[in-house]
Design a protein around this nucleic acid. Structure first.
Lengths: 194, 194
DNA sequence: AAAAACAAACTGACTGGTCGGTTTTTATCG
DNA sequence: CGATAAAAACCGACCAGTCAGTTTGTTTTT
């Protein structure tokens, strides 16, 4: 059985998430992560080829959860999908509080490191396309007003990203989940045909 | 005359902007900056108490330009102000290409470093208030439809931030200035009373 | 000559990654 | 089932390099 191995690996990952989130990628040293996980450096480098490889593994896992969420909404109608997204906001803001700096770190690293860029840009474009086709479908179905799907998709993603950023910078500046819910409602309402 | 001194200082600053933008705060070492600026480490630490102090100085300068832009639009009418903002987008996207990663870096550092957070949160809240009162004024004047100024302000800032982020992550993914212009137009149109 | 500006060698803490050796797990076979 | 050997997992001291910041001394300005 490789149960012990699995356990070590997951200990590394959760410690990495914790430390990358709070201190950032650079400030969280491999030694720190090992110490927090209660394992040795040898064990670390047995499981991950490098610090960057660990980072990439984290990115992968995170994208997986998004993909799963998208997959789960596959059979719903277009307006239903958006409603569901609205309902997901409180959860996102609640859980993302800690993970958000890391999310940002991913993007920042992505803009400079080609390997990481490749790993994060493809999913991003996929999500944009997903939204675009979703809106297009809504327009064709007749449930949405005539809009440029491409543009509307960019705007929705922008709003979401901007709200996440603002909530990161100033967590106590507003009731962010409320703002997010209302914003989404507003956006969707402006899309929906009355 | 302290002309030579001034020159050295500005050489440090422009090299810092250049290197922080391209490599990031951590990866750009003080030695690198000195080398790029063509000065010695002694000169660096003569002008700036620490690497962080330089970073803060950069942040200050950047906020200054925003404040100036706001100041310049003081006497215009509300719709005029927004129109002007729309027109400013191409310029922002054109010039910001290089500086944008640093903008993100500010955010990231701010979320972890209390000193930097203090320096950036106050201006941010000021800008939000500025927008809110601007929209409020527009509503009272009767040129805007009845909206929640607070919420509309958050949304406008979100959209702007999100677009900047997206353009940073995927510069070739879209004609961002065009998307930005259209998005702003769309937002403003939904605010304007017909 | 006093002070400000600058040069450059230096310090000490820290980092990612390696490596030889040890323990635990797993597969094999009598 | 139990002995055993190979393989996988793990340990932690160690290394070479890097970095922010210091110090000491020189040049330039006032």
């Amino acid at each position: 059985m490789q149960q012990r191995s699995e356990e070590t690996r997951s200990k590394i990952i959760s410690s990495a998430i914790k430390l990358f989130s709070t201190r950032g990628y650079n400030a969280a040293s491999v030694d720190d992560i090992c110490k927090d996980a209660g394992i040795s450096k040898g064990a670390f480098y047995h499981h991950f080829k490098s610090k960057q490889a660990l980072f990439l593994a984290l990115l992968d896992g995170w994208l997986q959860t998004i993909d799963n969420a998208i997959e789960a909404s596959k059979d719903k109608t277009v307006p239903e999908t958006f409603t569901q997204m609205t309902e997901a906001f409180p959860y996102i803001f609640q859980t993302a509080g800690a993970g958000l700096p890391m999310f940002l770190e991913f993007w920042l690293q992505a803009s400079r490191d080609d390997k990481i860029w490749q790993a994060s840009i493809a999913p991003y474009r996929r999500y944009h396309k997903h939204f675009t086709s979703l809106i297009k479908k809504g327009v064709e179905e007749g449930s949405f007003v005539e809009v440029n799907p491409e543009l509307a998709s960019r705007m929705i993603i922008s709003t979401a990203m901007g709200l996440l950023l603002q909530s990161l910078l100033d967590p106590k500046g507003a009731k962010w989940e409320k703002v997010a819910r209302e914003s989404t409602t507003m956006l969707v309402n402006s899309l929906l045909k009355k």
